[in-house]
Write a protein that binds this DNA or RNA. Sequence first.
DNA 1: GTTATTTGCGTCTCTTGGACACAATACACA
DNA 2: TGTGTATTGTGTCCAAGAGACGCAAATAAC
Lengths: 232, 232
Amino acid sequence: MTNPDAASGADAAALLWGAPGAAVKRGPKPRFTLEAIVDAARQIADEDGLSQVTMQNVADRLGAAKMALYRYVPGRAELDAVMLDTAFGSPDELNAGDWRAALTAWSLALYDRALQHPWVVELAGRPHTPGPAEIGWYEAGLEALSSLPLAEADKLDALALLSGHALSMARRAADAENTEELLAVRLYPHLMANAHRFPRTAAAFAASSSGDRDHALRFGIDRIIDGLAAHA
Amino acid sequence: MTNPDAASGADAAALLWGAPGAAVKRGPKPRFTLEAIVDAARQIADEDGLSQVTMQNVADRLGAAKMALYRYVPGRAELDAVMLDTAFGSPDELNAGDWRAALTAWSLALYDRALQHPWVVELAGRPHTPGPAEIGWYEAGLEALSSLPLAEADKLDALALLSGHALSMARRAADAENTEELLAVRLYPHLMANAHRFPRTAAAFAASSSGDRDHALRFGIDRIIDGLAAHA
DNA sequence: GTTATTTGCGTCTCTTGGACACAATACACA
DNA sequence: TGTGTATTGTGTCCAAGAGACGCAAATAAC
């Protein structure tokens, strides 16, 4: 019945939104905290990539045994969920008066966050339960959009569009050298060899010399905002 | 040196773009083909989800031993790459005269493809070597954009924007019941309980009754296209 | 002090991807 | 026609990684 492709457990929401109030309990003092565990996981992800975030590695970093972690986190999926929401953080309180400027700032801020922790892109890309921090971003985005005469549903859609673009660009930028090599070595030769089948694509790739990552970011944001302006 | 987070092997490109010409060889006749293996994997993914695509399951479906597959596919990552490109297929040759109509049709066609095989969204979402089919979509998209006075690099960016949106919407639609439950049961109560912290978001979610998936799709496409029109 | 809990964690199991060796097969060449 | 050789199918083994289970130590409540 349960689809194993769906990420996060039912318990993720409890961890993300649950009350931190934990009364005095009976047994031994807990040696760790959820925060410490998530911090350790975040460090590993920042340093060695998300694939190195294993229960074992996290436990090692804390000087604990692997199974000790399960007293604080139900499972790997829930750890991912908390890592993601923690890394999102709260959006900066920057409100330029113009809605265009505000939305642009919002998108760029999200992009910066994602650049600081490249792995958030991967986590955010899979289905997950949003936590308070992620909702905080939506709240800020809706505030930036508040002056626009759009249906509420459309505002949410617009934010999803912008955030999707920002995160997508952040991924590209994050493994730039990797992507560079990927395209240059793996795609390019084959594409050029088949230039007769894909003349436009070959030309386009040849013209755009894997240049300005920033340009693509701004281009997308500007286009979406222009589209919103044209519609409202 | 090699980043294990990077998907696909170096061999993926060879499988995707390599010449199919295999001369007469010496040993026993091959019992299988790459195509048959990929087909089996595709079927499993369609029926039971991407997580059920394991070498073991694919082999079982073909009546082969697991290790036999490795004679045809270097590894799991390469299988993913070929599955992805195969599922993309070639875009339909539909050219409405208007560039707006053509681009819209292109986006909708991509959305439909993704709906037919929901797992392509997940595969396309991770870094991978593009194959001929994927490049074919770019070629068709560039053709639709050919009349617009945009830099080649910008055209590629525009297509990435549109395809990202289409695939993102396809994912939502694919596990609709799942997402429905995710939001309704897991997010909604907590969001409403914290409505004081997130008034706009709570209101927006309450207003948009998880309705029209198609609306969000069209909204995004229209906004992007409007933005392109405003810019060109 | 006794008892009910709760923590830390050692041990075991299951699932996946993959390396490696070996026997069977079928063409090349003499 | 026989021999060599490359290639295929596959059995066996191994390493990760997630997690179930149970037990001993710690500690608050009575």
